[in-house]
Design a protein around this nucleic acid. Structure first.
Lengths: 194, 194
DNA sequence: AGAGGCCATGTCAGTCACTGTCATCGACCG
DNA sequence: CGGTCGATGACAGTGACTGACATGGCCTCT
């Protein structure tokens, strides 16, 4: 019999997501999350640097997956194709079974400006890491930054479409569509309505 | 003789930028900013919703300028060209005489994760406003989002180059270069080093 | 000119995010 | 069995931010 229940982090994350969903992020105190998880406020802040971070615990692993996936693609591929392939691979590896979970999580984030800020800086960090990986593959500085930023833009737009959809199409489907649209736009052929 | 010195907001902004530069954002308290501006902490928070916002007072006006500029471009222009033109027009209207000021401000922001978060959400807001403007011009939803995101990416990369440069070239110069690079990247021709 | 309202600011008390410090106590190691 | 370690608790403190109310020049209306 151990002194504490196991998986403190997991309990904190679950309690936080539930409370943020029920009453909103701003209306939830760290002490309430800790209490629901059977811990104290002080312990909450030992596991997470701040109230928002508890929703982004997986971001580091996700970024690693992105970077490793991109690094494993043959350097013969054009940067934009390497990015496209990376996005699709990660989408299939992580987001195939998570439509409902992603939807709930995204709803919570969208409802709070503070959480949106945190999500944006995570995406910026991801973009910087992808750009650095492209540079290691021999891509020019500026081209690497722009390829990574474009990839993130494609991901944002595709993800938004996927989360708002009914689950009939996979995230990878949305990403392919989004990438094609970006190529069309960059070529000066932005699509008109209808 | 009026009861208070005029231009409270301006004094607060100057005091904040100075203090953030001198001792860093986290090491500066709102009370210190207010004191240097000859006001109280409470008054600081009457003018700015939080400690970060004092550095972003002009963002709303800048966004308006972007949107109005884009809205004034003939609808016959391709979306990406309208975006490109908008970026250059704004660059020449606002950032011609501000190289040193932009450099100092950007250094302060880059030094603080919290300030970077705030900057990212301002850029996201700008992107959303530009996308909405493109939609009003008859551009398809997804194409509008991607054109706006691409424009912001071009702006980020160009701005970074300009701020890091010696002032020989204008921001508009950097933006043109960045846009060309994005077009090359999207076409599958990302530039290699050297 | 005088009355009254307006509005930017001051004052003060309160909540909550987050931190530093020290105590506790089961687990594990030798 | 004694000692160390690691996760947690307890508690006090700082600083961001808010709500409520007071103050006193300034403007308007008469």
């Amino acid at each position: 019999m151990s002194r504490w229940q196991p998986n403190a982090r997991g309990r904190l994350e679950q309690a936080a997501l539930d409370l943020y969903s029920e009453r909103g992020f701003e209306q939830t105190t760290a002490a309430q999350i800790a209490e629901r998880a059977g811990l104290t406020e002080r312990t909450f802040f030992r596991h997470y640097a701040d109230k928002r971070e508890v929703l982004f615990g997986g971001a580091h692993l996700l970024q690693e997956l992105f970077v490793n996936t991109l690094a494993d693609i043959p350097e013969s591929a054009a940067p934009i194709d390497a990015m496209a392939s990376t996005l699709e691979t990660v989408a299939d590896a992580v987001f195939l079974e998570r439509h409902e979970h992603s939807r709930q999580r995204q709803a919570v984030i969208a409802a709070s400006a503070e959480l949106r800020e945190r999500e944006l800086i995570k995406l910026a960090s991801l973009s910087a890491a992808l750009a650095a990986t492209l540079r290691r593959r021999g891509v020019d500085d500026q081209a690497a930054s722009l390829t990574a930023e474009a990839g993130i833009a494609v991901f944002k737009v595709g993800f938004e479409g996927w989360v708002g959809g009914n689950g009939e199409h996979t995230l990878a489907d949305f990403l392919r569509e989004s990438l094609e649209e970006l190529k069309a736009v960059a070529a000066g052929a932005g699509r008109r309505k209808n």
